[in-house]
Amino acid sequence: MSIETRALHYTYMPGSPFEKQALTDINLTIRDNEFIGLIGHTGSGKSTLIQHFNGLLHPSSGEILVGGLDVNKKETDKQELRRQVGLVFQYPEHQLFEETVERDVAFGPKNLGLSEEEIHERVLEAIHYVGLDEALLKKSPFELSGGQKRRVAIAGVLAMRPKVLILDEPTAGLDPAGRDEILTQVRALYLAHKMTVILVSHSMEDIAKLATRVIVMHKGRVAMDGTVPEVFARAAELRQMGLDVPQVTRLAEEMAKRGMPIGDGIYTVERAKSAILMQLGLLKNQKGKEGAGK
């Protein structure tokens, strides 16, 4: 399912002293089965933008089409829109409210008016996706650990079986293990279900590892839009926007400066590792040659 915006503008509290232009002239086409990494400084408009994608916010001007549905039109079925586009907010565990995990995850499907069996099936499926044990279903969500709560909340959105999954900093405040687990599961979902995923993150490492396309927001505009190498090649510009390139990319830059170039396009630790090994291998070979020359 694709999302298309044309000349999208959004202003918060228009006509009041607190008026703020949050989005300016956003033209994006997000195609089927893309994994989008959405990055930008705090206040750059990322969260505002993703809330347009499932009709929680309406553009002040401009158009937005989600799977052919015009979000602006009154007759557009909001329920349908939200079924298609699942949005996981920041700290989603703060929205848990039911007595048991099962009932909380079932909240979404229930709102869709599905049958009991169907709901149950979806709850099990969603719980399974996020890697939670079925034994937790009868527990209160408030007894769980922070990471488990977050996964329950994500399951609550997945149970709607969205075609587009939007995650707003899903790993904020989690420990490294919890972070890796959630991202691995998101990636598995993306690969298995041909979902469109939009991941908002401040971690350039995560973006570099997962995204097929990176969109950079700056002051309410789309500043860059391209593949991981295309965007991270513009390191100086990114730094000006208060962003950065992945740490390994900086390492590679620094190594090149100090006379040990390991090549361009180093964005992930794995890639860096093999490049360094190769370089070391080359060095060894050269040394070997030099030795042989003597």
């Binding site: 929680l56 909001k78 939200r82 079924r83 699942g86 929205q95 979404g108 709102n111 959105v157």
Partner: peptide
């Protein structure tokens, strides 16, 4: 924020 999050789940 909560209203939006629940609306996103079809509330």
């Amino acid at each position: 924020k909560i209203v939006k999050a629940q609306e996103a789940r079809g509330a």
